[in-house]
Design a protein around this nucleic acid. Sequence first.
DNA 1: GGACATTTGTACGTATGTATC
DNA 2: CGATACATACGTACAAATGTC
Lengths: 136, 136
Amino acid sequence: MINRSARDPAYQQLADLLRAEITSGRIPAGELLPFEGRLAQEHGLGRQTVRKALDVLRREGLVVTERGYGTRVVQQQEREKVPVPRGALIRIRMPSEAERAELGIEAGSVVPVAEVWLGGRLRGTYVGDRTDLTTS
Amino acid sequence: MINRSARDPAYQQLADLLRAEITSGRIPAGELLPFEGRLAQEHGLGRQTVRKALDVLRREGLVVTERGYGTRVVQQQEREKVPVPRGALIRIRMPSEAERAELGIEAGSVVPVAEVWLGGRLRGTYVGDRTDLTTS
DNA sequence: GGACATTTGTACGTATGTATC
DNA sequence: CGATACATACGTACAAATGTC
């Protein structure tokens, strides 16, 4: 239940509730969340407040929203191991909009990337939710 | 100028304008942006729309907002080099709210973290905007 | 310490646009 | 085409943090 007099804002409380549903598996990967209007009604919130809660979960990469369709729990990605040579420098950051398109990052998801530099030159950019880097 | 009939939404256009001011140095690091109400008036937008534009810049790590004070252009962070031993596995992802507090990540900024695993055990968690990993 | 102005944060309602089914 | 559902954008109000006097 949302407690309006709690210190945490309502949108954060709703995000916490939904995150618990997701991480516990009660809402399995691939499943749609209730649509925004329904969440608003169920919890006695405005739709903008629900959208802020969903934004929190998108930033954590837990859900992806498709316009005109709904918000679903993301499938845990198969992770590829990428070897990093010795002497490399790895920098992690958020991608720009152009990079997202280039790297095939789904719209609505919030995923970091890793740059691997060697000898002052960029050797590769890797997407966080489907790559692990290994040092050899 | 904001073009209301353009394909890009108004908040994105404002974010682009402000980003250009920042990256060009016309608004130097440490400087405050005009406050939200002023930006709204200057560009003929609602305050909520201005807030969405600022959110875009916060996600890119370009600005930081302090409640009751204002939004300022961030100082370029001093980056620490963290050596990663051979045979390690590096996983990058977004931090939870609890981790953000633990790692001292400023509220309002969107920053990834890197986990370094060695021998199946977590050896460290590093914040993306102030750390580079180096392989030895 | 209090009083006050300034500024950001949260939350509501409403309307309209646009993508999907 | 219509129904559904998310996206953008406006206005409004009040709460909470900050800085100043």
